[in-house]
């Protein structure tokens, strides 16, 4: 399948989904759908570094929250232009503010990408484990920074009040839903393009044997940095519309550990070798969690995700996609003894 054709199919599916929800569903469908779409972006983003390169990122929540809080930051600036700037500057800036959400998404992506670059540059030259540990600690530190930063609400949290209606789309949630569909298309296309390019083969050599790759002249550090920035930026982009979706952001919700767990569990359960895996994993787990949250409890559904993650990494290392391939028998999968 050529890439333009792939994009057209995605747009068609996205449009069909949107129209289906708009005609037959209600606002809840859009809210639930938004969450699942957000997880597809997070899982796909995680998989670019985790699945293709073999480097584990435990800090998905941090990158996600970076996107969310960069939106809060610019929203708050827009709210208090008169206090922050002189009259003439405020008048000038009032043409720009409030910044539309698509631009905020790009900003959030840039911020998260930069943080990924910094963390990666310091830790990716060492053994892979150190990067994983650094990302684990990164979440705690960025949360500490946010808690101490009063302008974005500190530990109290911040209110972000979106317009109730928006032209063309109607209710604001439908607008966010449409934006998320666009993000999913961007993420999946990105992942699929990488998979079939020189870049993707480079990533695969790092995953399979970094030392050998280095010896063959693969610029491993540069490739790893590219993967980290791409993956981090996509996570930040997924987080940027979050404040508008939820209306009230506090560190506990933006840095929620469930983002980190889900963005690892979804590709692991779906399968990490191709873009299909995270998509399947995110749709399955995301929908399951939406159902479990309303029917059982939100704590129990986290337990289910954790147990599924442990179960799958032990029993089915290649996820659902791997199980499917084994079953069909198209490809004989062998592992080094």
């Amino acid at each position: 399948m050529r890439t333009p054709f792939f994009v057209i199919i995605q747009i068609a599916v996205g449009l069909a989904l949107y129209l289906l929800f708009a005609t037959y569903g209600n606002d809840y469908w859009f809210y639930a759908g938004y969450t699942v779409l957000q997880y597809i972006v997070l899982a796909t983003a995680w998989n670019i570094l985790g699945g293709y390169c073999g480097y584990v990122n435990f800090g998905s929540a941090a990158f996600f929250a970076l996107g969310a809080y960069s939106s809060v930051f610019f929203y708050n600036i827009g709210q208090s232009l008169d206090e922050l700037f002189s009259e003439s500057t405020a008048a000038l800036l009032s043409h720009i503010f409030p910044i539309p959400v698509p631009i905020l998404i790009l900003i959030g992506g840039a911020v998260a990408g930069l943080v990924g670059l910094g963390t990666g540059y310091l830790t990716l030259r060492l053994r892979g484990v150190f990067f994983a540990i650094a990302t684990l600690a990164l979440a705690v530190v960025i949360e500490t920074l946010v808690v101490n930063w009063q302008f974005v609400g500190g530990s109290r949290g911040a209110y972000v009040i979106p317009a109730a209606e928006i032209p063309v789309f109607g209710p604001y949630i439908q607008y966010l839903f449409a934006l998320m569909i666009v993000l999913v298309i961007v993420a999946l296309t990105c992942a699929r393009l990488i998979e079939r390019s020189r870049l993707g083969y480079g990533f695969a050599t790092i995953r399979d044997d970094e030392l050998a790759a280095e010896a063959c002249g693969v610029p491993t550090l540069r490739l790893k940095l590219i993967a980290t920035v791409l993956s981090g930026a996509l996570m930040g982009m997924a987080g940027a519309p979050f404040p508008f979706f939820i209306g009230y952001v506090e560190p506990g919700s933006a840095f929620n550990l469930s983002y980190a767990v889900n963005s690892i569990a979804m590709p692991m359960i779906g399968g990490t070798t191709s873009w299909v895996g995270p998509l399947i994993g995110a749709i399955l787990l995301g929908t399951l969690q939406q159902l479990a949250t309303v029917t059982i409890s939100s704590v129990v559904n986290l337990l289910i995700v954790g147990l599924l993650l442990i179960g799958f990494v032990i029993v089915a290392p290649n996820g659902i996609v791997g199980l499917w391939q084994d079953w069909v028998g198209k490809k004989s999968k062998r592992f080094g003894s």
């Binding site: 985790g50 690892i264 990494v313």
Partner: peptide, 14 residues
């Protein structure tokens, strides 16, 4: 490297 880490992360979370 990859799955072992994910395993321990799952244990931590569970």
């Amino acid at each position: 490297a990859l799955r072992g880490l994910a395993f321990f992360f799952g244990v931590l979370f569970v």
